[in-house]
Amino acid sequence: MTKVLPFNLSWRFVRVWQRNLVVYRRIWLVNFFVPLLEPLLYLAAFGIGLSALVGTISFEGRELSYTAFIAPALLAITIMYNAFFENTYASFVRMYYQKTFDAMLATPLSLDEVITGEIIWGATKSLIATAIMLAVISLFGLVRYPHGLLILPLAFLGGIAFGSVGMVFTGTLPSIDMFNLPIFLFISPMFLFSGTFFPIDGLPVWVQHLAIAFPLTHLVTLTRHLCLGMFGTHLLWGVGYLFLFSLVFYPLALLTMRKRLIH
């Protein structure tokens, strides 16, 4: 019988985080390149190409240019992608092909610490990418400060939420090709229907209900409000949801990885 509780956790997860940082710094240029150029690409395509067709979008009583509408969504998507892909493909490669976790488990690290280090690292990647992207978007005058700075801690929280759920898939899916499935069923629908490129109010009611369950919907709402410098206590619901989501999926990630790796 494997022991389920309590979790074997200490500050040592930082060691795993540091290991990933060493690797990240080796190819930092590539890592910086994507969040630097991606928003330019999107803003060019949607902002210039599509905004002529769309015109303005009304959001909470304000008329927004289409660029101003989607820029915060790009930040939210970056948060989701960085953590989710780090803790699915990259973690899977380390676990399955490189046997990095096996090597770590011959040192004073516990599996819970290894996985926690991986998830915190995924959130850190979200944070770094978001910071770079935020700087780029700010150049276009699309972010109000100081409110916009709150997007940084939000990126970390969102990173933990999406990284944890990614890690649950890493702990359960038998092969790396199978990640197409959660991406198709989970990531792509969120990418499209979380109020990212159009408001969800226009959608059928049942889709709206579904969208409320998506963590990305809450993340987009939060980044959009913060970029526009709009505060309100109702934003706490979104933060609470992301917390709750992490609180469910982070322990689940530890459990599935234990089941997978500890024999």
């Binding site: 540091q18 060493v22 690797v23 080796r26 046997k99 096996d102 090597a103 004073p108 690290l109």
Partner: peptide, 24 residues
Amino acid sequence: QQENNLDPDLTVLQNLEVFARYFD
């Protein structure tokens, strides 16, 4: 361990240094 599970992302020296950190 049985498999060569060195860290392919790192150099020889970094492999040792990163591992040393796990032991404080």
